[in-house]
Structures are given as C-alpha cells and as structure tokens.
C-alpha cells in the first residue's frame, strides 16, 4: 500500500509528526505500507479536506480557521483565552474534542476521520515600534490575526487586517500591519521575527487548530495488520512532535536575543481586562451561534474545560 499525503509549505516542526508516522508505519510493516508526503503538489492547503472527500489522496493536514464553515465543530478549539497552557494540554483537549460524535459526524461528511492534532503554542504577537504592553495601546493596532484571535483583538479596538501568512513579512515591513500573531515556528519560517522589535511572552490569546485526517474508505480498506501498525504509531508520532517542538521552544529565547527582539511581559491586571472583554463575550457568541446551527455547542465547550481539568489533575 502506498498512501499520498497532502501538506503544504516546507518541512518544519509543524509537519514532523506526519514524517514520523510515515517512518513508523513503514518500519512496522516491513516496508509494505509507505507514505508519500507531498508539500503542495497534490492540493492547495485550503482544499485538503475537499481532496480527502474526493479520494484524491489518503491523508492530509488542514487548519480549522481556513474554512470555519467546513468544520464548525472544532472551531471551539480556536476560541480565544481557553487557558491552554502548554502543548500537552493542547493535545489532550484537541483529541478529546476530536473524539466527540459531533466532530466525527461532521468529518464523515467529508469522508474524513480524525487521526491526530498538530499542537501549536499560543499565538503571541510580534510588533514593530514601541512595545504595546497595555490594553489601551491595542486600540487602532493593525494586527494580522485570523478566526477567533481576530475577534479577540477587535474586541479591544484592534483592527484585524487580512494578509496571507506568506505576505505577513512584507505587510509588516510595509506597515500594512503593526503586529502579527503566529506560533513561534511560524514567526521563524515566515520571517516576521526578523522584522520585529518586540514579542509578547505572556499574552497567550489562543491558538489555531490543525488536525491530520485520513480518508475513511482508505483507512477501512487497510489490512488489519497495516491498520494496527497505523493506529499504534499515532501516539509515538505525537510524542516525537512534542519533543521536537519542545527543543524549538528552548531555543526561542536565544533566537529573540540574537535578533534583538525585546520580550514583553504584560501585567496580570491588563491580561485580566483583556480576558474580560475578549474572552467571555466571544465564547457566548460562539455558543449561541453554533447552538442555533444545531451543534451540541455547550457540550463541546464543556468538554474542553473538563478535559483541561483532568489533564492538570493527572500531572
């Protein structure tokens, strides 16, 4: 069996678990089950879910925020200020939500089945000019942030400004935006860190959620041995991802130092104010909106917090 896997960009921390999964599966099946990972050759990133539904390829990665209407249920994971503190918690929360029947049902409409998440740390801001460490300074700030994050910043007077991630560097350089919200690896790979004067270390407004899915027919069509090899490898692939991203985060401080980027800490008072304005109201709006569309919104929402609690107790 050879599977085609559609991802985008270039190989980076964000795709390491997929490479690891391919490696493990090949190893466990003695080379019988291989994966051919293609960076953009098979589909456009925003159409990976379509590709899965057509049967164009067997496995793919996508992000919920690219097309909220395709995957309403998992947008709960992109709400601002969920309070997810680290990548382990992000994995636990994501996988709990992925296992919910409402998510499985929505994915089944795309002939897709969730495999694992691509956990990302909180999307903190880099910016040019004087550091913005008070809420009042977010007023009129042009910020590159999508989905729930965009909503959070506009709640405090920021102006979410749409540029694609590949244009983010230039948008920052040209003053189209003042600040860009990304995870660390993306600040590195899209070069926004080179343009920045400061980085918010503890704003932690939220993150985006990017699952890896398989085509249901292809998955069901695997021989029992191959399917077992695949299923067994998922946890190990995620562990590899976490270890790899962890080392990137360890390097992060030295990257900041090397590029001369100031680490900005925002006071607890300011953070509390931000959460108050941009947290609860946006959560409530999401709950009302999704419930109106017939999703078990409250259930999904509660699942996030109960999972967080459980995860913290077990540590």
């Amino acid at each position: 069996t050879e599977w085609n896997v559609s991802v985008w960009g270039k190989r980076r921390a964000f795709t390491e678990h997929i490479h690891k999964l391919a490696e493990l599966v090949e190893e466990k099946t003695g080379g019988e089950f291989t994966m051919n990972i293609s960076y953009g050759g098979l589909s456009k990133n925003r159409e990976n879910l379509d590709g899965i539904s057509i049967g164009a390829f067997e496995m793919a990665q996508f992000c919920a925020g690219y097309h909220a209407d395709k995957n309403r249920a998992i947008t709960v994971l992109e709400l601002p200020f969920l309070g997810v503190a680290n990548l382990d918690e992000e994995v636990a929360v994501s996988h709990a939500v992925y296992a919910h029947p409402a998510v499985a049902e929505e994915m089944a409409q795309w002939n897709a089945k969730m495999v694992m998440t691509s956990p990302m740390p909180q999307y903190n801001l880099v910016g040019t000019g004087d550091p913005r460490d008070e809420l009042s300074e977010f007023d009129g700030m042009r910020v590159r942030a999508t989905g729930g994050l965009g909503k959070a910043f506009s709640a405090v007077g920021g102006v979410p400004t749409s540029v694609t991630s590949s244009e983010a560097y230039q948008a920052m350089e040209s003053g189209v935006v003042d600040t860009v919200a990304f995870a660390q690896h993306a600040h590195l790979s899209f070069g926004t860190i080179n343009q920045a004067d400061w980085w918010t270390a503890n704003l932690n407004p939220g993150t985006v959620n990017c699952p890896v899915v398989v085509n249901i027919d292809s998955y069901d069509g695997l021989s029992d041995a191959h399917r077992a090899a695949f299923d067994e490898s998922v946890d190990e692939a995620i562990d590899h991802y976490l270890a790899n991203y962890g080392s990137l985060l360890e390097r992060w401080d030295s990257v900041l130092e090397e590029k001369g980027v100031q680490k900005v800490m925002i006071s607890d008072d300011e953070l509390a104010k931000f959460r108050e304005v941009a947290g609860k109201p946006i959560h409530d709006a999401w709950l009302a909106d999704m419930a109106a569309q017939g999703l078990p919104a409250q259930e999904l929402y509660d699942l996030v917090f109960s999972t967080l609690e459980k995860q913290r107790m077990s540590n």
Binding site: S53, I54, G65, Y66, T146
Partner: peptide, 25 residues
C-alpha cells in the same frame, strides 16, 4: 462538484465553505 461541496441548502447562508478572515460563503 467543487461548487457542490461548498454548498449546503440546510446550512446558514447555504454555506459549507467560508473565507478565512470574514467568513464569506
């Protein structure tokens, strides 16, 4: 078929695919 996958008569705005920033169908 590309259009049809993004269209759902029963969904709000008949939309099953939306744009990245302001969620246009």
């Amino acid at each position: 078929s590309h259009f049809d996958r993004s269209f759902d008569f029963s969904a709000p705005n008949w939309s099953r695919d939306s744009s990245i920033d302001i969620g246009l169908p």
